[in-house]
Design a protein around this nucleic acid. Structure first.
Length: 815
RNA sequence: GCCCGGGUGGUGGAAUUAGGUAUACACGCGAGACUUAAAAUUUCGUGGCGCAAGCCAUGCGGGUUCGAUUCCCGCCCCGGGCACCA
């Protein structure tokens, strides 16, 4: 027998498959259903790591399985190639980011080819190609024209290390998603996409998707829809007139307990007051004991101004970490309680967030812990209005209403409804903010906007797309976006639009590039459209999308929004881009820690492929744990050796084939087909493999050629090279990967003899082997006669029994 | 604090969808065969305690049931999401 030479076999078949274009996917195949399997495309960092193998090679099993069951499967691969590392490499080594990126892509493409996955390379794409980003820009201009993209002055997240703005989704625990630098707040004019307009649809449409519940829950909580009530408080001031203060609350039943209002430092009431009154410099210290200075009772607006300035200088984290509530009373201005008419003080306090609700709250110190802490500190009245069971210091639950005029005695829920009806109105508020998409960096899709001499933005007309990224820029960080240093871009703008016109110099968040890439795979060479209507009809939506958990509230949310926006503009059909989604787990180093160079626990997939072969690597990754659960699986050197041994045993079977089929082996084969089919369908590749291992262990010297050919087809998606080699060794025609998936025969699964457990009071005391045809009576008789069981029944006579067909008998001897 | 997952041998994990022989498969470990020897391969064994009968074991404590890893109640621990969100 020939040795199992994985290197020879794998190179040979990879070449052959490429030459035969085995995985080229037509848009339509007569009689076949289309099936679109998608994996998140990689960033071309320069080297394929084990995580990439886990992300691509294991779903390849599923793609191959679907193909063998008769579907026309699209399984594409590309590169999400814009982004910071290229630019940082450019700065560090003084080279062109495009060159760095393209080199990496070439190298990684070769590595991917050695994976032996069934990608259709003819449909490959990279987001940095002008042919690709032309459409990214086209969509942006359409969003702009339809008021889905807009500019506004806003407080945004700033990463000082990446020197760019970040979207809320890209701030993880106050740190930059990329580099873990603490994010600060910065006031600047920024581009936004109106994702918040889609809040309800993003939350509600999840219900119709075949997605894991935890992802749905996480996305819903990110959208953060909250139903409540809005109340208006009239504002009375000594000088000037001010608009009513709108507050949002989820507890309208506590309205009568409101003893003060608080507004965020950024609230417009504060800036209006400051503008109207102006801070009297040094007034506090020059005033007399009654606060009178030069015969005028002075207000505290210098303190207010200082407080606001301090609050705005803090990072979000600093505001949060300061658990002590602080604030300053706004003097000379009061609010009128809508129900009682009482005058109540207004404070500015940074525990009120400007971005949530209306940026102002009605404070109910008796029933809210934060308001309570604040009221205690500043000696504000605390009026209880809800009575409940709990004897906490601050009762925050629902209960019976008191001290609330005619609403006394009502339960919270009823009072909430009545009070809302009488004094306020129902209101819904969301946590989701608009998506900040401008990046002050070079290596990204240029925002296709130009400004006229008056500074008004205009979309670059479609005929000038792609609006190309210029190459004459200074990459050295200067605080200015690099495109500002491009003469070519400036000249191009003036040449096309006229003197005095200037280009936008920011680039797009790369998450925009990846928000529609799945639409380009389906028609990648189309120069007239991002994808033809017929390609969209045949391929969209994506049937199965596998990726990492980190994208739950980033890419997945953005892509869903993008697709809905495109649908509203008439570019795509349907509501959702991804029918079924699965988050995979994480492969850890052998020491159980996340792989990292500093820990020295990195497993290089290329080394492993060299040693044991790509088939072993992918099969081991499939075997390491259930693929559709977000577990963390440590790489185990012994484990991969075990999988390699399994493949060797399968290899050896070709030399031990028998002529006469064995009945029990035939049955085992059908059981194996059943298990492998069901488990693979359910993405439980680990148990699918264990079923095949069982077959090999049992049948390795009792299998006929025909049976072995069935087995090879089962194993083919898991170990595509070795099975292809064996298929041909056995004289198989064509590729094993183009064979039909084996079907099992229900009749072949029927067993003649069953083993039935016999319990006494629920504890197994013996088992009997009996003909599958035996009826209950015969089985009970046999069970009672079982030696050990009889012993127990002798001392404790049977009162009754439970019979579970073909499984067990349980004799109950006590009441 | 709130919301999701999860906790099973020395290890990764099965069985949890419908309550029905817990620990499949693999690693590791032990013993044997082959070999001058080792490696490789192969055969057998392997939850714990016990000579055995048997007892005890699915994070802990209760409950329902003839029977609970599975269902219910109350905790503990680990991972993740959200979090001064009104």
């Amino acid at each position: 027998m020939k040795e199992y030479d994985h290197k020879k076999i794998e190179t040979k078949w990879q070449k052959k498959w490429a030459a035969d274009e085995l995985y080229k996917t037509p848009d339509k195949v007569k009689g076949k259903e289309n099936f679109y399997t998608l994996v998140e495309f990689p960033y071309p960092s320069g080297n394929l790591h084990l995580g990439h193998w886990y992300a691509f090679a294991v779903p390849d099993i599923y793609a191959r399985f679907q193909r063998m069951t008769g579907k026309n499967v699209l399984f594409p691969m590309g590169f999400d190639a814009f982004g910071l590392p290229a630019e940082n490499a450019a700065i560090k080594h003084n080279l062109d980011p495009r060159k760095w990126t393209d080199q990496n892509i070439e190298y990684m493409t070769r590595q991917l080819e050695r994976m032996g996955a069934s990608f259709d390379w003819a449909r490959s794409l990279r987001t940095t190609d002008p042919d690709y980003y032309r459409w990214t820009q086209f969509f942006f201009t359409k969003f702009f024209e339809n008021n889905l993209a807009y500019q506004k002055e806003a407080t945004v997240n700033w990463c000082s290390s990446c020197q760019t703005v970040l979207a809320n989704e890209q701030v993880i625990n106050g740190e930059c998603e990329r580099c873990d630098t603490e994010v600060t707040q910065k006031e600047m004019k920024q581009w936004f996409l109106r994702i918040s307009d889609y809040a309800d649809r993003l939350a509600d449409d999840l219900d119709n998707l075949d997605w894991p519940e935890p992802i749905k829950v996480a996305q819903k909580s990110w959208v953060g829809r909250q139903e409540g009530t809005q109340f208006s408080f009239q504002v009375t001031a000594e000088t000037g007139e001010f608009a009513d203060l709108e507050v949002f609350t989820t507890r309208p039943d506590t309205l009568y307990g409101v003893t003060y209002l608080a507004v965020a430092p950024e609230h417009e009431l504060v800036s209006q007051l400051l503008a109207a009154e102006g801070p009297v410099k040094s007034s506090s210290k020059d005033a007399d004991a009654n606060g009178v200075f030069n015969g005028v009772k002075i207000k505290n607006y210098d303190k207010v101004e200082m407080y606001v300035a301090q609050a705005e200088a803090k990072t979000e984290r600093e505001r949060q970490e300061n658990k002590e509530k602080t604030g300053v009373k706004l003097e000379g201005v009061v609010a009128v309680h809508p129900a009682t008419g009482a005058e109540i003080p207004i404070f500015v306090a940074d525990y009120v967030l400007s971005g949530y609700g209306t940026g102002a709250i009605m404070a109910v110190p008796a029933h809210d812990k934060r308001d309570f802490a604040f009221a205690e500190k500043y000696n504000i009245t605390i009026t209880p209005v809800v009575e409940g069971d709990a004897d906490d210091k601050v009762f925050t639950g629902q209960g019976t209403i008191i001290n609330s005029g005619k609403f006394d005695g009502l339960p919270s829920a009823a009072a909430a409804e009545k009070i809302t009806k009488k004094f306020g109105q129902k209101e819904t508020t969301y946590r989701l903010r608009d998506w900040s998409v401008g990046r002050q960096r070079y290596w990204g899709t240029p925002i296709p906007i130009v400004y006229d001499p008056d500074g008004k933005p205009h979309a670059v007309p479609e005929e000038y797309l792609p609006w190309e990224l210029p190459d004459d820029v200074d990459h050295t960080p200067s605080g200015e976006p690099p495109l500002a240093s491009s003469k070519k871009l400036k000249e191009r703008t003036e040449k096309i639009f006229g003197t005095g016109w200037t280009p936008e110099v920011e680039t797009m968040d790369t998450f925009i590039d990846s928000s529609w890439y799945f639409l380009r795979y389906i028609d990648p060479d189309n120069s007239e459209d991002f994808a033809s209507q017929s390609a969209r009809d045949t391929w969209m939506p994506v049937d199965f999308y596998s990726g990492g958990a980190e994208h739950t509230t980033m890419h997945l949310l953005y892509a869903r929004f993008f697709y809905k926006a495109l649908a509203d503009l008439g570019f795509v059909d349907g509501e959702e881009p991804f029918k079924r989604r699965m988050n995979r787990g994480l492969i850890l180093g052998p020491d159980g820690n996340k792989m990292s160079k500093s820990k020295g626990n990195v497993i290089d997939p290329d080394d492993q492929v060299e040693k044991v072969g790509g088939d072993s690597v992918r099969a081991y990754l499939a075997f390491i744990g259930p693929y559709n659960e977000e577990g963390t699986y440590p790489w185990d050197m012994g484990g991969i050796a075990g999988v390699r041994r399994f493949l060797e045993r399968a290899w050896a079977m070709q030399s031990n084939l028998v002529d006469e089929p064995d009945e029990s082996i035939e049955q085992k084969l059908h059981q194996t087909i059943k298990s492998v089919t069901e488990d693979t369908k359910a993405l439980k590749f680990n148990t699918a493999l264990s079923a095949m291992m069982e077959y090999v262990n049992e049948a390795k010297r009792k299998t006929t050629k025909e049976q072995f050919r069935v087995f090879l087809r089962l194993l083919a998606p898991f170990a595509p090279h070795i099975t292809e080699e064996l298929w041909h060794e056995l004289g198989g025609e064509g590729s094993v990967h183009q064979q039909a998936w084996p079907e099992y025969d229900e009749k072949a699964l029927v067993v003649e003899e069953v083993t039935i457990a016999v319990q006494v009071n629920g504890t197994v005391r013996g088992e009997i082997k009996i003909s599958a045809k035996a009826d209950e009576k015969e089985i009970l008789a046999a069970a009672r006669e079982e030696e050990n069981v009889a012993k127990y029944l002798e001392s404790n006579p049977e009162i009754r029994h439970i019979y579970v067909p073909s499984r067990l008998v349980n004799f109950v001897t006590r009441k």
